[in-house]
Design a binder for these strands. Structure first.
Lengths: 215, 215
DNA sequence: CGCTTTCTCACCTGATTCGGGGATTGTGAG
DNA sequence: CTCACAATCCCCGAATCAGGTGAGAAAGCG
């Protein structure tokens, strides 16, 4: 059983050299070869590839958009991105779009065949420098999510109730009605909240409450 | 100039075979070899490695904790994780802890030397199946973060400026001073913002701005 | 050239919030 | 049993915000 491979690259020389490279392996079959991705979904439908090689820089529509579209229609297709640039954002965007591997073009000759095999076996081939970018991004993302250190302002239960009403945009009057207490009581609580959060206006309270998830 | 490598692995056989493997390369130097990570920080301080090989399964303290500690003290040290398991969580945790590469143990013989060189050159060697897990995680995380469907309230640039001031807790007066415009102008902008966001109080504006990331 | 949008500013009236007080209960810790 | 603290309520004056109305200058557009 042969492995069908479709190529998207605007550079004919690269397409040809990839084709030649792939033909050295008997079980690889170039199912299609296209110089743009404007009809990528149709192209994939027709060529029925197991693996798509996608250049990231393409005229008309970017390779990243193409990945999104192809993955949406044919989620089982594995896509290997190729690029000359190590642009952080594009690497990241490609991954989010659903690419399964990422190869720098200057590794094409030496690594392409290996990479395709790795894709075939459920791996994700990546040039090491790309992998480094991915790991760094991963670390920054995860550390950006976690830091939920809530300094704990010792708000009482009632104060928290009032606070969450404030965050929901209620006025003192409305809060009073809502909690069945007097307007003045609400004010007392709010004053306390001001003290405890070290702020001096409702907007600051709301901002602080939301950002520090005291709500 | 030789590359100093320190090994942490509770299995003596593996430590020895790694050492032998590394000795085939003249510029590699095994700086230290330890069977546990309880004193990993001191061990690293003494052996002064450029690269640390860390087994993920270790008695006493897990390799992941060790990575955290080593990276905290010696951030420039590159750490290559090794494991027999492809446990999703541990892979992810290792990355967050600061590991720079991830190698499955059954690739040790064939890939270790290459991987160390890639680390040396700023890459992140990963077994393809590990890379796949990382990509998948990445995709799920990013899609979990992104769903920020911002309905787009058509705020003008100036309005957004005012808005961000509001979110930072500034009063109209302060905003006026900040943006070098009149108090009344600030009010005009705020009124517009109220209309566009369909709200009627500052607290609602702040809450909406933060929650929908219009800031 | 008109037309729309944006940014700017102004005035007035009423509503709401802010920052000080002070007071009364009940409850739980020491 | 005090003593602290939370929760409730009250008053006042000053500051700020809200809503409505109007209007001029500059920029962009057909």
């Amino acid at each position: 059983m042969s492995l069908r491979i479709t190529i998207f690259d605007d550079n004919k020389n690269i397409r040809d050299s990839i084709t030649m490279l792939l033909q050295t392996e008997p079980e690889f079959e170039v199912a299609g070869s296209y110089c743009h991705v404007l009809d990528c979904v149709d192209d994939v439908r027709e060529s029925k590839p197991d693996i798509v090689l996608m250049d990231i820089e393409m005229p008309g529509m970017s390779g990243i958009e193409a990945v999104t579209k192809i993955k949406k229609e044919f989620p089982q297709v594995q896509i290997l991105m190729q690029t000359v640039f190590e642009d952080d954002d594009r690497v990241f965007d490609s991954i989010c779009a659903g690419a399964s591997g990422y190869l720098l073009k200057n590794f094409l000759n030496t690594k392409l065949v290996d990479s395709i095999r790795e894709l075939q076996y459920g791996g994700s081939p990546m040039s090491p420098s790309i992998a480094r970018k991915v790991l760094n991004k991963m670390q920054s993302v995860s550390s950006a999510i976690k830091p939920e250190e809530t300094p704990d302002y010792h708000l009482t239960a009632r104060e928290k109730e009032v606070l969450s009403c404030l965050v929901n945009g209620l006025s003192y009057k409305m809060i009073a009605a809502d909690l069945n207490i007097s307007y003045e009581t609400v004010r007392s609580h709010v004053k306390k909240i001001y003290e405890k959060l070290h702020v001096a206006s409702l907007t600051e309270v709301v901002a602080k409450a939301i950002n520090q998830r005291i709500v």
